[in-house]
Write a protein that binds this DNA or RNA. Structure first.
Lengths: 142, 142
DNA sequence: TTCATATATGCACTTTTATGCATATAATAA
DNA sequence: TTATTATATGCATAAAAGTGCATATATGAA
């Protein structure tokens, strides 16, 4: 195949590739569920992933064009990009079409994490003792 | 993340992964374009890929559930599976949403290759001198 | 049964990818 | 300016993936 033909295709391949990883798929589904901007620490706490991983996967999703960032002071807020192309719209619909129960634990943690916002903003940052306390209680309840 | 949660997700990740490769994406688009079963040699000639690669990628697409096979004698015919799940329907729509020009060369070759069928069946097999002759003429015309 | 042919697969090699650790950057607060 | 903190990135490592070559399987024809 010619290189130019591959370059035309690359954009779409990159989007599929960016969703072929469990952490990135979880991030996208989390952003769909949230329906608003989330900061990195909210995402990492919801997924219970390390901050390094979360950050890097977010960057990949940004590179593929599925996600955009909005820098506010030292906080970086991530959200889904507007569906500019037909293709991207179908992709997001596809992720929405995955049964809810697959992501239920992440979404529950997100709900709790978002309840700790003050005036609509995340204020507790990463490795927060407050979050540790709250999430530990949830585990005990099970 | 728990292993069971990953297993729930794996099916969807595998489908995204299966489309994150140029050869497999081209195969899927070719099958969409054809709208009918294609044999391995028709696919490899349309893509101008080696038979080894074509065969292996078809197997991966079969494993992910996007493609099914129908064995007729020593010919194996491949086609898209019926869209049993909402998710899969969106995925195929997404591939359909990729601009036509990205795959135009493959589709042109497919058209020529299908014109060599007799009574709706592929009869010329692989490394066919007939195909080599026809496709060489197309190249000269450019 | 033997040969030809359509398709599949094991092995080796190279490249890519995911992840953890440590560290760097950048912005706010003191 | 200095310290703190939210986020990003380089390095190393291990696992996975794509491809070519050779070979195996399986079906139909002679």
């Amino acid at each position: 195949m010619h290189k130019s033909a591959y370059m035309n295709m690359k954009k779409y391949i990159d989007i599929f590739r960016s969703l072929s990883d469990k952490t990135r798929l979880r991030i996208i589904r989390l952003l769909i569920q949230a329906g608003k901007e989330l900061c990195v620490c909210e995402i990492m706490d919801s997924l219970q992933e390390s901050h390094y991983n979360t950050s890097r996967h977010l960057k990949e999703l940004k590179n593929s064009g599925l996600v955009k960032e909005n820098k506010v002071g030292r906080w970086v807020l991530y959200s889904l990009t507007e569906k500019s192309e037909e293709f991207q719209g179908h992709i997001i619909h596809a992720v929405e079409g995955i049964p809810k129960d697959v992501f239920v634990t992440d979404c529950n943690r997100l709900k709790i994490r978002l309840s700790l916002r003050k005036e609509g903003k995340c204020v507790i940052g990463l490795k927060s003792p407050e979050w540790e306390k709250v999430i530990k209680q949830v585990r005990v309840k099970k």
